Simulated scan of single mutants.
Amino acid sequence: MSPVPRRAGLALALAPGLPRPGRGQPGWPSRPIRILVAWPAGGSTDAVMRLLAGPMQAALGQPVVIENRAGASGSIGAAAAAQSAPDGYTVLGDASSQAANPSLLRGLAFDYATAFAPVTQLCVAPALLLVRAEDGPRDLAGLLARLRQGGGTYSSSGIGTAVHLAMAALLRQAGVAATHVPYRGSPQQVQAVLAGEVLTTFCTVPAAAGLVRDGRLRALAVSSARRLAAFPEVPTVAEQGFPGYAVTEWLALFVPAGTPEPAIARLAQAAQVGLADPAVQARLELLGMEAAAAGPAALGAFVAEQRMKLAEVIRAEGIRLE
């Protein structure tokens, strides 16, 4: 994944290539803007979109309304957005499923690659690689050595989730096999490690931070390209012999393909003004995320690269959502 900007000093300059608003859509916006969130109310994606709705509303001068359209790994909300008029008044708030779903799901009524225009990346959510502190390996090399002995298992918060794909990508790059045990959410996947039901897991920071600090879990690595400010002592996977490795959850805004460029530019700048607010950044940190502004061109290139990388892992591992 692309390097994550540091939280301090985040500004609009972090999004090079962002088009400037033009005059191709006079009077826009003149009515409320709807953000379709492809995930359930109360989840991390929903929380970020609601956090940014206020600053975006202030910047755009029109109400910004959040509407949850959850289900089918984000594809229900994406389908609704894809079928909406390309006028800038319907925005899709989505996660890394934008990159994974084309390979995970069959029979979609739309093509992720052509149905949407990128607006801006918002943030990333790195994951910690965890083992039980009491008797787990001391480092990533030790974990992989134990897995090579055979019979190793790992948990995730569900098939095809970012943490599942993070582990699948690591195992593939390391040439190691392990059995995946999916659970119904982050608390359950972490409890499985604590109880000794599985050897390891990649887990989002909020679900694991307290247990790491209490000494019940040991963090062996972080899945992002850079170390986390909250856990500076935990090395990245890439630092430990796997150059180029970086798999995280990420959130971004998209609009239906054909939306006028001036509207896209206004939406991107409104979101990035919100991301530059220190209070917003502090709240994102509590959610285990880091602000990562990027303009439409950069986001489009990033998503295309992620689709290619994840497709390779998903095909090789035979991962499928039915």
Rank of each mutant, 00 (worst) to 15 (best):
S2W: 13
V4E: 07
P5I: 13
P5S: 10
P5G: 08
A13P: 01
A13L: 12
L14T: 08
L14H: 15
A15C: 12
A15S: 14
L18F: 02
L18R: 03
G22E: 06
G24H: 12
Q25N: 03
P26Q: 14
R31P: 06
R31A: 05
P32L: 13
I33Y: 12
I35V: 15
I35K: 06
V37Q: 10
A38G: 10
A38Y: 06
W39F: 08
W39D: 15
P40K: 04
G42Y: 13
S44P: 00
S44R: 04
D46P: 04
A47N: 04
V48D: 05
M49Y: 04
R50T: 14
L52D: 01
A53R: 00
A53D: 01
A53W: 12
G54I: 03
Q57G: 14
A58L: 11
A58C: 06
A59R: 01
G61V: 04
G61K: 06
Q62H: 10
P63Q: 14
V64D: 08
I66N: 05
I66A: 11
E67F: 02
E67S: 07
A70R: 00
A70T: 02
A72I: 01
S73T: 07
S75P: 00
A78R: 01
A81R: 02
A81F: 00
A82H: 05
A82C: 02
Q83N: 05
Q83R: 10
Q83I: 02
S84Q: 07
S84A: 15
D87H: 05
G88V: 09
V91A: 10
L92W: 01
A95H: 10
S97R: 11
A100P: 02
S103D: 14
L104P: 11
L104V: 13
L105M: 05
L105C: 07
R106V: 09
G107E: 05
L108F: 03
D111A: 04
D111P: 04
A113W: 11
A113V: 05
A113L: 06
A113P: 00
A117C: 05
T120V: 03
Q121A: 15
L122T: 03
V124F: 13
A125V: 08
P126G: 08
A127L: 08
L128G: 09
L129H: 00
L129M: 02
D135L: 05
D135G: 13
P137R: 09
R138E: 08
A141H: 09
G142Q: 11
G142V: 01
L144M: 06
A145C: 04
A145V: 08
